[in-house]
């Protein structure tokens, strides 16, 4: 079997994703559609929350991918720092905007869900606060990438930021939990979906989660391909200038 690291070669990556990307993209659309249509139209209304609960089929997968995207960026950054594979650094760069949007979707659907359920668009609940902080980390990471001209320098600096940011993001998460327990006892409004749900909900939810995972994969592959092309274009332009 070919080594996994072969795919870190730009040419090999481009050739593989030439045929892989369409498959992943189609699979993402199909699986997500099944999950969402099943979730929206073929599940019973919750006896307490009514049909509002069905936003869970977008909310939970988006929130999950928001965290997974950061974890993927962390792994890709480590691979770049240790093994210097350019594709890895560019994949981390491509994943950031997707993670940012997933975080935003999670926050917005959460607000839309929370309004009828809790009577408020926003609460400084630890989980909500953590997501808002994650959003800020994504913003900083993307801003740093866009501020640096030299691609390798950008890859190095953002990788270190991702590493340090991950530690502080975890610290912030615990700080948020601690903080809200500290003075406002028992104000936790968070509903932990999945814990009280039966299979009528679980099945479409898992399908939807898989779909979102595939969407993420497709977008990251497409984004990485774009970054590789942009990098090549830059090299060609430099070459023109030097000739």
């Amino acid at each position: 079997m070919a080594s996994f690291w072969e795919y870190a070669n730009p040419l090999k990556f481009m050739r593989t994703t030439d045929w892989l990307l369409p498959i992943v993209a189609i699979a993402a659309v199909v699986v997500t559609s099944i999950g969402l249509i099943w979730g929206f139209f073929f599940t019973p209304d919750d006896f307490r929350q009514g049909s509002t609960v069905k936003i869970v089929f977008i909310h939970v997968p988006a929130a999950m991918m928001a965290i997974n995207a950061w974890v993927m960026m962390l792994v890709a950054s480590l691979i770049w720092l240790i093994r210097r594979h350019h594709v890895s650094a560019l994949a981390a760069k491509a994943a950031a905007p997707v993670g940012l949007v997933m975080t935003l979707i999670g926050l917005i659907t959460g607000a839309v869900w929370g309004q009828p359920m809790w009577g408020t668009w926003w609460a400084w609940d630890p989980r909500l606060t953590s997501f808002l902080i994650l959003f800020l980390f994504y913003l900083g990471y993307i801003a740093l990438w866009s501020a640096i001209d030299d691609p390798d320098t950008g890859a190095d600096l953002t990788a270190v930021l991702c590493l340090v940011g991950s530690v502080f993001a975890v610290l912030s998460r615990y700080a948020a939990i601690f903080w809200n327990q500290g003075l406002h006892q028992g104000a936790s409004l968070s509903v932990a979906p999945g814990t009280r749900m039966d299979w009528a909900y679980k099945a479409p939810l898992y399908i939807s989660m898989t779909g979102f995972g595939l969407i993420f994969l497709a977008l990251v592959l497409a984004g990485t391909r774009t970054e590789i092309r942009a990098r090549r274009m830059k090299a060609l332009v430099t070459r023109e200038r030097m000739a």
């Binding site: 730009p10 481009m14 390798d152 092309r229 990098r231 090299a235 030097m242």
Partner: peptide
């Protein structure tokens, strides 16, 4: 020397 780029050769863009 300037690197020679082949058509569709993406490796040349990375040092």
């Amino acid at each position: 020397r300037l690197p020679e780029f082949g058509v569709g050769d993406f490796n040349e863009a990375f040092l």
